[in-house]
């Protein structure tokens, strides 16, 4: 058997990847809700991966069976980056419910920092604030790309930030400027996470949120280094899990547990 699957069951989206001879041959992304277990099965089926050896990862990694093993999404992310951006030294991942900065080398984790407690610095914060600003999600990128000065939004507590944003709106500031301020605040939060592990170039960013060009631009500004986005940034973790699956099937030593 030469095909292997990786299944990343995230809190927002479930991603599946299939690799063959070290090359990605198929990926899919499905919403995880309302039923993560079902989403996992559907993702495997749509990928044509039923019956293939699979390693699961992500928040719901324990939900799917049978599996060859399960790894943490950070280990899988590092492995995936090792394939799609082999030179990367640092990975910034902004997910729906958390964000992570991982120092990597040859597909392995050197150090990492993760924020999963506070909505600030995650896709969720952007989502909530876009709603307060009445900016539909499909227009987010356009509005956040307008050539206007961002208005600083200093509160990172979601409740405080919400009232700050409402306050700015009531002063008739244009939503685009506020949205850019919100984006700046999220990215500065991610940057402070990054400073904990040290931002070593080259930096790549992954996760669903960085599909927005505005997010990437703002992130690069906050981090003070250029960042690149690999193709399908949302699927890198699933790809990494598939790689680890192949390695494990070949009798490799990674990972330690699972």
């Amino acid at each position: 058997m030469s095909r292997f699957a990786g299944l990343d069951i995230g809190s927002t989206a479930t991603k599946c990847a299939v690799i063959e001879d070290g090359r990605v041959v198929m990926t899919v992304v499905l919403p995880s809700m309302p039923d993560m277990r079902l989403a996992a099965e559907n993702a495997l089926r749509e990928c044509g991966a039923e019956g293939l050896p699979v390693i699961t990862t992500g928040y719901g990694r324990a939900l799917h069976e049978p599996r060859l093993g399960q790894v943490s999404e950070i280990t899988a992310l590092a492995a995936g980056v090792g394939l799609v951006a082999p030179d990367a030294a640092t990975v910034v991942d902004i997910g729906g419910q958390d964000s992570k900065v991982v120092r990597v080398e040859a597909g392995r984790v050197l150090d990492f920092a993760m924020n999963d407690r506070c909505a600030a610095g995650t896709g969720r914060f952007l989502e909530v604030m876009s709603r307060v600003l009445h900016v539909p999600f499909d227009q987010f990128d356009d509005v956040a790309s307008e050539d206007v000065e961002p208005l600083p939004v200093t509160s990172t507590c979601t409740v405080f930030a919400e009232s700050e944003v409402v306050g700015l709106l009531s002063l008739r500031h244009p939503p685009a400027r506020i949205l850019k301020g919100v984006l700046q605040s999220v990215c500065s939060r991610v940057a402070s996470l990054g400073r904990q592990v040290g931002m070593v170039a080259p930096v790549v960013c992954t996760g669903g949120t960085v599909q927005s060009r505005a997010v990437v631009r703002s992130l690069s500004l906050a981090l003070g280094v250029p960042v690149s986005v690999p193709p399908s940034p949302q699927r890198v973790t699933a790809i990494g899990a598939a790689l680890l699956c192949a390695r494990r099937a070949a009798g490799g030593q990674l990972p330690n547990v699972g």
């Binding site: 200093t154 509160s155 990172t156 507590c157 405080f160 009232s163 700050e164």
Partner: peptide, 12 residues
Amino acid sequence: DPRSVSFDNLQQ
């Protein structure tokens, strides 16, 4: 820390 201060909230 300005991140934990919201003048709007204080005013309210």
